[in-house]
Amino acid sequence: VLLLKIHATKNCSGVSLKTQELYAIVFVTRYLDLLFSFISLYNTIMKLIFIGSSACIIWYIRFHRVVSQTYDREQDTFRVIFLILPCLLLGIFINHEFTITEILWTFSIYLEAVAILPQLVLLQRTKNVDTLTGNYVFLLGGYRALYLLNWIYRFLTEPGYRQWIVWISGTIQTAIYCDFFYYYFQSWRRNEKLSLPS
């Protein structure tokens, strides 16, 4: 959705480069297993799509002649090091196995939970949020929220299925969207443009 929007409108105002870069870090550190394990064709293709689309978005915002001019550089000022460092420490200390790939995988789970924060802060600073950008954040949050249902279903149907790190992080991630969901639905109901209160 976001890539299509940027490609079609040649405009990325309201889009946080910081969040996109965090997602690129999340995908690359989590999908290292592309190199040494195979789960399914669907799984592999989706991993490649996630890595590829976020790399493409970053390229557009950073380097595209027209798109880069529309980037809200002065507004997108979230200090991502304050997210990356704690997640890295958490990944080093709370994991299932003290190996490089496992620590990076766990780090990516923690980082993904908070990766949307720079985008939410930027949306709050943007007076009239572009409809497509609002839809992108809604779809991203909705996608993660659906995992909660998926986990409940798998817990009930698959003996021995449990993954506490993923469940807790995913629940926090979805909770972070709650406020956004509220204003998204309100603007939808009233047929108004989305704007978050400051």
Partner: peptide
Amino acid sequence: EKEEEKKDEL
């Protein structure tokens, strides 16, 4: 007992 995680989710 080691918690076995199947990393089949995205």
